[in-house]
Every structure is written in structure tokens, then in C-alpha cells.
Design a protein around this nucleic acid. Structure first.
Length: 596
RNA sequence: GGGGGUGUAGCUCAGUCGGUUAGAGCGCUGGCCUGUCACGCCAGAGGCCGCGGGUUCGAGUCCCGUCACUCCCGCCA
């Protein structure tokens, strides 16, 4: 007989009755009846009820068992009496009568309960992550993640994609997020950077004559955390294709995403995903990552208020502000507190407030209605398809702020009016992102997304159009308000790249110094190519039905980018620092001293 | 860097208008229990009410400050 087990804790059933078996696992739960003791024994696969009887050798030791100790038992598989069968348990038809027991490892009192689905402070959960991961929900989430990744690999390879590895130690790049830096021992004062994404490498693979690249790629960005964003690192399904148009990329990746979601969820998925131009998304949904489960579409209403008697908005519009209307279907009849609550919500986001009108009995009421004449009200009704019983909110501000406020109000209305469609994953492509945006802080034109994207219209567009009007072959996949992927058709022409960078304020020397490898490659026959990079963590998060990315990451860092389990980031020895040619600043030394 | 929320037993939380001895459930310890499966019953231990200051005859409760956690904004080509 095997030293530890002949079966797993999920294996045994009615067919095994009479066998002598050996099982190992954790003491999940104990039920002590004095002269009879039940132990639910748990392993990775499931639970099996072990019975200890008082006339057996292990009885006394079994009574003393602590939860989560690891034991190995040998005994006979016995059929349960019909009334004692537990249909909730896969092995519920049988139990094992223990004749011997060995305690393989004892557990101390637990800082968190493994056998209960209860909330614990994240600090505790991360410090004792090995216990947290034993729990049902987390164990299932991590398994789901593994299965999703395996499914993705299968689907990618079936489409002829080839998996590559790319370096983890690479060069810092001037665009994008803050880099994690790694000091060089051999080159005093110089640093490697961890890749924010294998962006340049995957493009170099295309320029190296490979055709379809993919990688489940770790990405490192030194950004602050959010619920749906791990600090430090995350994974992408990174992919890139040669000789493709935007449509080719869509046709390659959409079946993978839709297929994975269909495989691991019961929710409805509509494919093909609708395509929404960026500009339209910003107007209708107030965001470039709309939650399409909410059946609310905003609209422009500046013209309705321009020159009206509602002086606050009319005056603002005259000075260049815009008004966005956000319908609130069926909101008439809601108590005053609902409308005041929405205004409070807007104010909590830094807005001065919100206007609103309620349509009822063919007329309009509310603090704003009396300032608008019949024709203006009629325009609103028609433009937003408003009927009696519907209300409409107004956000008035400079375009960017009004848009963001409208988006937030739309989302909040969806929640409060219970309009979020259940049991569905609503995907869409957001397309036609602008190539550039105006950086208010730097007072200059900057790349709005990926600087390597191909501008729509190519060189001619760069030379003739207002940079802020130029679109890029740049696209996102969004699902239920979560940005899942970002991608682009790349710029494979050095002349177009020079011009594109020039507009963003980078001259040739910057391109040569900071993107030298790629710029060089463009001069030796780069194929047209493009790709996309769906976020693995967010896909699993949506499939697991959680709003927090740390629920689907085995060993995440906390919000302050610390790992309480491993103690990262950690101090290092003076010797290590010296080897790396690093002197700590006074600030750093003081911080360390303050910690003790 | 900024804003909101939360800090009461190991954990989840209750604690009334400021009122005298701070509670419950789970867990833990001891006892009882032969058919449970979230077993049940009895008893017990366990509290700097985050920390510091203030108001008050009296503060878990009110005020100020501070720290921690969390969500958000900034940031995320």
C-alpha cells in the first residue's frame, strides 16, 4: 500500500465498499459525539467523511486533532445507511472507518478559518495566503485561472500562433508607466527595466520573419493599485500578427475571447462584438470602457440650453462648456432623496451639481423644466426617446469633465435604477482612438496611446491634418465596463514613425537612442503587422465573478505594493548595495531607521 | 499627492440621546454526548473600544489631530 494514499478524498463511492484504503489530507472539520467521532478529511480533490469508533486504536488521538492538521488514515470503506447519505458530498454515499491514523503535521490555532466562507482582512489573508488558498473559493479561483490559461494556449495554437519567451531584464523606455528598475552590477550607474509589456520584442519577432506570435506574458508597471489592477505585475495574452489589417486581428482574437468566456461561464455572450468608435463611446457612454449592460445612452444637449432661460447652463455654454443629457428611464416617482442623492454623487466627484427634468403626463417638471420652452423640451424628448415616467439628468462643464461626469452618472443610474442586465457578458470593440491628445500639464501634444500605432491615413494624414483630428488603428476590447485588451496595427514605416514622433515632440535622436533596436529594424524590411494584448487577470476576474483582481491572483501584493507573506520589498545588505554601486539617500536611510 | 468609507474579543459584527458591570455569533480551552455532516448541550478564558489630545460630573459614543486598512481621483504609451 502506498505510504500516503491509495485514493484521493474525492474518489470513493458505493462501488468501493468493502475495500481497505488509505487517505491523506487536512482535518477540514470535526464532529465529536463522545463515543463516535467524524472527521471531514480534505485534499485538493474533495472531502471524505472518516469515522473514528471508540474501540479503535486511533480514537483518542483523533479526538485531540486540531483543524488543518495533516493526517493519514487507513480503514475500510463502508456504505452509509440510506438516511445518513449526504447528497451534498461527492463521496456522500460512503465513509471510511479508520483503523490506523498517523498525524503527518500538526496545525496551530488558525488566524483564519479554512472551512468557512467568511471575510477576513486582506492583511491577514495575504500574510497567511497558504491558508487562504486552501479555502474553497480561492482554491477554485486559482484552478479556474489555470484552466483559462490552458484553454487560451490551446485556442491560440489551434490558430497557428506560436508561443515565444521574451526577456524580463530589458531597457527602460521613455513612454508609458513608471518602470521597475534593476541596477546593473557590471555597469555602474546603469539600469535594466522590467518590461511594461513585451511590446517591442513582439514587433521585433514580426520583423524577424515570424508570423503569429503569442505569449502569456508577465508585465511590470510601477503604478498605484486599484481593485481591478494589481500593483507591480500582471499577465497579458500578448499576441502579434504579420501582414494583417485591423479586421484580421479582430477575427483572430474575438473567437478566442468569446470561446474562453463561453467555455467557463453560463452567461450569454453575443458575438460578433459590436464596434463603437471612440468618439461615439465618449458621447453616448461618457467613457471608453462602457458597460453595455446598462441600456442608457447619453446625448449632446448644449444646443437645448444655449440661449435658454436656464442661465447657469446657457451662460456656461456661451463660454464654451457643453451639456450632456443622461436619461434615467422610469425614474419619475422616485423620492426626492433619489434626485438629491444623484446630485450628491456628482458633487462627490467634484462636479458643481446636476440638473434634472422629470417627464410626466405629457409635461415636464423639476427645478430646470420651467426655464425651458416647449420646443426645447420637445427636442430633448425626441433626441433621447424620453417618455412619460422617464427623467433626464444634465451634466454641464468643459467637454472632458462633462463627458466623464455623464459616464459616472450613467453608471450610477444603472446601479440605482437596477438596470444592469444580469447573466450576460456584453463585449464591444472600441475603435478609432485618437492618435494624439493635448497634454494640459505639459501644454503639448502627446501620444494618446501606443506611440507605435499606425495613424489612419498614414504619412499624408500626419503631414496635412490637425494632429488632434488624426485617428489611429488602435482598439480596445471592453466587457461589462472592464477594459480587457488594448491593441493596434503598428507603424512599420520609418518615415511615418519619424513624423509621428516629431509631432509628439521627439526628434530623430530620441527615436534612435531610446527605441534604437526597433527603429533600426524598420530600415531592413519590416512587414505590416499588428496585435493586441488581453489581460489574463481581468478575464479570470470576470469569469470568477469577482470585482477584485487579488481574488484571482495566488500571491498578490497589497495596495502599498508589499507582499506580507514574503516580506517584499525587503532590505538588502550593505554588500549588495555596494556591488550595485548604490548609495541610499538620506530620505531612504531615515525611512529605514524609522521602521527600526 | 488628494478625497470618501471603516477601525470595538483571534475573526465577523451589535452597542440607543453621552450614563455607571462593553455584548452576540464563529473560533479557542475544559466537560458531556453513538450517526453527525455549519452536529448538539454546559462552563470558561479572551477587550489600551486603532493611537494621542480635548469637551464633560461622566466618552466606545461628541470635537481636533494622527495612524492603519479599503475604495476612488491623480497615474496606468
Amino acid at each position: 500500500m502506498h505510504a500516503y494514499r491509495t485514493h484521493s478524498c474525492a474518489d470513493l463511492g458505493a462501488a468501493d465498499v468493502g475495500q481497505t484504503v488509505r487517505l491523506s489530507g487536512w482535518v477540514h472539520r470535526k464532529r465529536d459525539h463522545g463515543q463516535l467521532l467524524f472527521v471531514d478529511l480534505r485534499d485538493h480533490y474533495g472531502l471524505t467523511q472518516i469515522v473514528f469508533q471508540p474501540d479503535t486504536a486511533p480514537f483518542a488521538a483523533a479526538e485531540a486533532l486540531k483543524l488543518e492538521s495533516v493526517i493519514c488514515i487507513t480503514g475500510e470503506v463502508v456504505a452509509r445507511a440510506p438516511e445518513a447519505v449526504n447528497p451534498k458530498l461527492q463521496t456522500g454515499e460512503i465513509e471510511v472507518r479508520a483503523s490506523t491514523m498517523e498525524v503527518l503535521a500538526t496545525a496551530e490555532p488558525l488566524p483564519l478559518e479554512v472551512n468557512a466562507d467568511r471575510d477576513y482582512p486582506e492583511e491577514t489573508r495575504l500574510k497567511y495566503r497558504f491558508l487562504d488558498l486552501r479555502r474553497d473559493k480561492m482554491h477554485a479561483n486559482i484552478l479556474l485561472r489555470s484552466k483559462v490559461v490552458a484553454s487560451i494556449r490551446r485556442r491560440m495554437e489551434a490558430q497557428g500562433f506560436v508561443e515565444f519567451q521574451t526577456p524580463i531584464l530589458t531597457a527602460s523606455s521613455p513612454e508609458g508607466a513608471r518602470d521597475f528598475l534593476v541596477p546593473s552590477r557590471l555597469h555602474p550607474g546603469r539600469f535594466y527595466a522590467l518590461p511594461q509589456a513585451p511590446q517591442q520584442y513582439k514587433q521585433l519577432f514580426m520583423m524577424s520573419g515570424f508570423d503569429r506570435y503569442f505569449q502569456i506574458a508577465p508585465c511590470f508597471r510601477d503604478e498605484d493599485a486599484r481593485a481591478d489592477r494589481s500593483p507591480g505585475e500582471f499577465y497579458q495574452l500578448d499576441l502579434e500578427m504579420a501582414f494583417v489589417t485591423q479586421d484580421d486581428v479582430f477575427q483572430a482574437v474575438e473567437p478566442v475571447i468569446a470561446g474562453v468566456f463561453a467555455e467557463f461561464s453560463e452567461r450569454r455572450i453575443d458575438s460578433p462584438f459590436p464596434r463603437i468608435p471612440y468618439k461615439e463611446a465618449m458621447l453616448k457612454y461618457g467613457t471608453d470602457k462602457p458597460d453595455l449592460r446598462i441600456p442608457i445612452e447619453c446625448a449632446e444637449a448644449s444646443d437645448v440650453f444655449a440661449g435658454s432661460d436656464f442661465k447657469v447652463f446657457a451662460g456656461a455654454v456661451a463660454k464654451g462648456a457643453v451639456v450632456r443629457a443622461i436619461p434615467a428611464p422610469g425614474a419619475v416617482g422616485r423620492p426626492r432623496s433619489f434626485f438629491d442623492g444623484m446630485i450628491g454623487f456628482a458633487q462627490s466627484l467634484g462636479a458643481p451639481g446636476l440638473g434634472y427634468i422629470q417627464f410626466e403626463d405629457g409635461g415636464a417638471k423639476g427645478p430646470v423644466a420651467k426655464f425651458l420652452d416647449q420646443s426645447r423640451l420637445q427636442t430633448l424628448r425626441e433626441r433621447l426617446n424620453l417618455e412619460d415616467g422617464d427623467a433626464v439628468f444634465f451634466a454641464c462643464d468643459k467637454a472632458a469633465k462633462a463627458t466623464a461626469l455623464a459616464g459616472a452618472v450613467r453608471q450610477e443610474l444603472g446601479k440605482q435604477l437596477d438596470l444592469i442586465e444580469p447573466d450576460v457578458f456584453r463585449f464591444c470593440w472600441i475603435v478609432d482612438f485618437p492618435m494624439y491628445e493635448y497634454d494640459e500639464e505639459a501644454k503639448a501634444i502627446a501620444f494618446s496611446h501606443n506611440p507605435f500605432s499606425m495613424p489612419q491615413g498614414g504619412l499624408e494624414a500626419l503631414e496635412t491634418k490637425d494632429p488632434l483630428d488624426i485617428l489611429a488603428f488602435q482598439y480596445d476590447i471592453v466587457c461589462n465596463g472592464v477594459e480587457l485588451s488594448s491593441g493596434a496595427i503598428r507603424n512599420h514605416r520609418p518615415d511615418i514613425m519619424l513624423k509621428a514622433f516629431e509631432i509628439a515632440g521627439y526628434d530623430r535622436s530620441v527615436l534612435e537612442e531610446r527605441f534604437g533596436g526597433m527603429f533600426r529594424a524598420l530600415h531592413f524590411g519590416a512587414p505590416p503587422h499588428g496585435g493586441i494584448a488581453p489581460g489574463i487577470d481581468r478575464i479570470v476576474m470576470l469569469l470568477a465573478g469577482t470585482e477584485n483582481i487579488r481574488e484571482v491572483t495566488a500571491f498578490p501584493m497589497n495596495q502599498k505594493a508589499e507582499d506580507p507573506l514574503m516580506g517584499a520589498p525587503s532590505r538588502v545588505s550593505e554588500k549588495q548595495l555596494k556591488e550595485l554601486h548604490i548609495n541610499l539617500s538620506l530620505t531612504a536611510r531615515e525611512a529605514l531607521a524609522a521602521e527600526g
